[in-house]
Design a protein around this nucleic acid. Structure first.
Lengths: 167, 167
DNA sequence: CAGGGAATATTGCTGTGCCTATAGTTGCTA
DNA sequence: TAGCAACTATAGGCACAGCAATATTCCCTG
């Protein structure tokens, strides 16, 4: 095989993207752990808290995170056991149940967020001049739109959880 | 808590980075699967193949991937069972063993790479004008250097596996 | 050259997530 | 009204990775 593929600019580019991403993930995970949260728990807490009423149906939560529905079941199990979340039956559709952030969950997120933002600032946004950051974000935005993960991770967009069935 | 943190530009930025990264990962995984490889198996194959002699000590392989040493043990187990790799004892240090890419492993990588590069081109590098791409890569490079994962994922750098002990 | 500390790979245990199957619910249709 | 397909959440089985413990080997020092 051609040994020079490793010098292919495409390989270099994707390597950079993944290295930067993985490095930041590791920083985040360490800080989350200081507050007794795993990365996915933090993500769940964020998604729920930014949703109206601090709640979301299990299915919608799965759609907004990278978890499957069964994965959501178990994460919510753990977080409910730890008092961060609480299940609430949907009155109009007995199939559905909501995951609701508790006061403890909110304060946990409150405690975690400042450090989280500080890490982003220190290792990412603060590393770049404003124009440079803007260029990078533009590029990422374009790639994001192209790859179009849709519900996979609509971070900036609430992902319009379809029809909340008026619950 | 302050509901407006979700509009914080830092949150938006990190969301973009992760969405783009996750979207591409998903594309890659699907293509790897067509060739019977998992993402980590592909990474192992790449790391080994780009190394002198198409081989690496287990420890060095762990340092160059995001796996722990025990993780490497098991991945190499699977890949050896599938005939993609082969263990070779280090003659000068009986503690060490090498993972060596077999001919089957090389041809598997050969079969997988074109599609891989095409995906990168289609969803990443090809989405951006040359100047835009360069700006994005500059930014990523700076973030990568800042977060400095070192051995975690030295994609562009062979990571100078310390001292190969002259094996 | 004997012994202690470092290095290397492996194994058991545990945690976590996905896939599939299952049970309950809803809404549509004959 | 009864039946049926779609939807929702959960449970069981499986795969996989990390951590800690273990056995072996190496290297350095006395």
């Amino acid at each position: 095989m051609d040994e020079n593929v490793f010098d292919d600019p495409r390989i270099t580019a994707i390597g950079l993207l993944f290295e930067a991403s993985a490095g930041l993930s590791a920083r985040f995970a360490a800080q989350f752990e200081e507050h007794g949260l795993s990365p996915v728990e933090f993500e769940v807490l964020m998604r729920l808290t930014r949703s109206p009423g601090h709640q979301l149906r299990m299915t919608d939560l799965a759609a907004q995170t990278s978890l499957s529905t069964s994965g959501v079941t178990r994460v919510v199990d753990r977080m409910e056991r730890d008092g961060l979340l609480r299940r609430r039956a949907c009155p109009s559709d007995r199939r559905s149940s909501y995951a609701v952030v508790t006061a403890a969950g909110l304060s946990r997120l409150d405690a975690t967020l400042p450090g989280h933002l500080q890490i982003i600032e220190e290792w990412f946004t603060g590393q770049l001049a404003p124009a440079q950051l803007e260029a990078l974000l533009d590029g990422l935005r374009r790639v994001r739109d192209a790859v179009h993960p849709g519900a996979t991770a609509g971070s900036t967009e609430p992902a319009q959880a379809g029809q909340a069935a008026g619950c």
